[in-house]
Design a protein around this nucleic acid. Structure first.
Length: 575
DNA sequence: GCACTGAGCGCG
DNA sequence: AAAGCGCGCTCAGTGC
């Protein structure tokens, strides 16, 4: 059962259409004003449990969530099209010719309770949206492409997981990470001093700048200017070739201490200081925007507030509401395990029999040196040629010829300008004509550049197959986790919607929902904001979902993907 | 004034 | 010890 959702020709109106799985024409067409969309969707969801088909979840779902409506399943045409257009698995299906151009990405968010009051001029782009016919046609084209591809089951899983990811992303965005403004401010106070007016430099930072200028005998130095700083360092006899912290560490000079301290605090002040709090934290929640499949490899990206770079320094401000815990889980050595599975390297799988794959590898051939094993393995996945990991490669190759051979092959294909694919069929974009032309260059200088470009692309494709497949595993994990969390606590969280709560009602950070909610996801890590009573059940679900994800991707294999779970009040205490 | 790049650094 | 993958964000600096 599908339910199609599309913009109609008139602004501020949308259409729903139900489809049975045979793809027979509309059996139940509802045309609704945007203002009542949430109600119509809720009713349809209750009666039919359909898979919603829409151009982009990101344009419909936030509005529905704001109006208290959750959706169980969907097919996100934009995300799936992005996969199918480039996938090597669909190369022979003719989908590229049949695919329809998507509506522009900057359509306004759909159909919240307020949108009907907006003037027509508020939503000019709505007219450019898809109608039902276009939605139906694109869905049919995608289904055909998947069915006639070289790996229908894999692409079907990938598009389903990606679409579920779109739902998770919107829900997490809506929910937000519990964020204690008071704790964050206390932290800033301790590290930076009292907040100065007008975004001026805080006291402790200013003091370090003064100390630094004195140490370098440069009274006008702007420590935020790399050029300015470089000149001052050289005058003081420090002949560093960059001003990177790790390089400056090597020098003995009384300016280095204050400079490194300044760097660290300046970073905190500018990126995650008071301005960040004002901009990104509302009502005790940090609401970043997630971009599903925003990275070429299929990883998610994010926009707003730097959600994927929350420094360890401030994680103490992410604290569960009273009566709740944070269940924080991360997949142990996800990428190396993915490599072992992809390459079907049973020696490496054996090393991962216990929870710590690196320790297992160290025991098999690096004299028990875990750090060495880790550097070597990551070097293989990233394409390192020099340094310690480069030196360890021959040893690693002797131990795991299949695993190393697998990434080597991906690298060689990339160097030849070929595409490579993840396990489920996300492929690298084809190389540009410019790249290809560069490879045919004649002069010695051009040839050196071409070889360097080829090696660089080899490192990219080498990493792509592993990172991208790891992203697929994580997406399946997340989707299964979401499904099971819904089954655990099926009551929708309609107790008063945060957006509708009376002003001055619940203070920031007070519990509003009573069900466990996914609130954060980062590559191989998830966070569930979980009522105390459900912590045990949720922990079990997290583990079980990882087993399901492994099964879905790889079938029955002699390798597990263990997950580390910690139950904490504060994110700072996770791991 | 705006768009862009590079340096630097946070995360996985 | 400081190379090799993928990002986002901020500031300085540059070019228009």
């Amino acid at each position: 059962m599908y339910a199609l959702l599309a913009t109609a020709a008139e602004p501020a109106a949308v259409e729903l259409q139900l489809w049975d799985d045979g793809g027979s024409p509309a059996s139940d067409v509802r045309k609704v004003a945007a203002a009542s969309l949430a109600g119509a969707v809720r009713a349809t969801e209750r009666e039919h449990r359909p898979r919603w088909v829409w151009d982009r979840a990101q344009h419909w779902y936030p509005g529905l969530l704001a109006a208290g409506t959750r959706v169980e399943r969907c097919h996100d045409l934009a995300l799936c099209q992005a996969i199918l257009l480039h996938s090597q698995f669909t190369a022979g299906t003719g989908y590229r010719q049949r695919a329809r151009a998507l509506p522009p990405e900057d359509l306004p968010p759909a159909a919240g309770p307020d949108t009907a009051q907006g003037s027509l001029f508020d939503q000019p782009a709505r007219n450019a949206g898809w109608g039902l016919d276009a939605v139906a046609a694109e869905l049919a084209a995608q289904k055909t492409a998947i069915a006639s591809s070289t790996h229908p089951a894999r692409l079907s899983l990938l598009t389903t997981a990606e679409s579920a990811g779109a739902l998770v992303a919107a829900e997490m965005q809506n929910e937000g990470i519990p964020w204690r403004t008071d704790l964050h401010r206390r932290l800033l106070d301790e590290l930076l001093g009292t907040e100065p007016p007008d975004h001026a430099r805080p006291p402790k930072l200013e003091a370090l700048a003064v100390e630094l200028r004195a140490a370098l005998d440069a009274p006008a130095l702007n420590p935020d200017s790399p050029q300015d700083l470089m000149r001052a360092l050289h005058r003081a006899g420090i002949d560093a070739k960059s001003t990177r912290s790790w390089e400056l560490q090597e020098y003995q000079h009384r300016a280095i201490g204050p400079l490194l301290a300044y760097r660290k605090l300046s970073r905190l002040f500018t990126t995650n200081g008071w301005a960040w709090l004002d901009q990104w934290v509302r009502a005790g929640r940090f609401h970043p925007e997630y971009l599903v499949g925003g990275v070429v490899s299929g990883r998610w990206a994010s926009r707003g507030g730097g959600a994927m770079q929350i420094p360890k320094q401030i994680r103490g401000a992410a604290v569960a509401d009273p009566g709740f815990k944070l269940v924080v889980a991360d997949a142990a050595q996800l990428e190396p395990r993915v490599l072992a599975a992809l390459a079907q390297d049973s020696a490496m799988a054996a090393a991962g029999r216990d929870k710590d794959l690196y320790a297992g590898i160290a025991a098999q051939g690096f004299g028990g040196e875990r750090a060495m094993a880790k550097v070597a393995l990551l070097g293989a996945i990233y394409g390192s040629t020099s340094g310690e990991s480069g030196r360890l490669m021959p040893q690693l190759t002797r131990m795991y010829p299949r695993a190393v051979g697998f990434v080597e092959e991906a690298a060689r294909a990339g160097e030849r300008g070929e595409q490579v694919s993840t396990h489920l069929g996300r492929s690298t974009p084809p190389v540009s004509e410019q790249w290809r032309a560069g490879q045919r260059s004649s002069t010695a200088d051009e040839q050196r550049r071409a070889e360097s470009a080829a090696r660089s692309r080899g490192r990219f494709t080498r990493n792509f197959v592993v990172q991208g497949t790891a992203a697929e595993w994580a997406c399946c994990w997340l989707a299964e986790l979401r499904r099971r969390l819904r089954a655990l606590a099926p009551e929708p969280a309609l107790l008063p919607d945060r957006a509708l709560a009376p002003a001055g009602g619940a203070p920031a950070g007070t519990a509003i929902t009573t069900r466990p909610e996914l609130v954060f996801f980062l590559h191989d890590e998830v966070m569930v904001h979980c009522p105390d009573a459900l912590v045990g059940a949720v922990t079990e679900i997290v583990h079980e979902s990882s087993r399901v994800a492994t099964r879905l991707l790889f079938g029955r294999i002699p390798l597990e993907f263990p997950v580390n779970v910690t139950v904490v009040d504060s994110y700072a205490d996770a791991k």
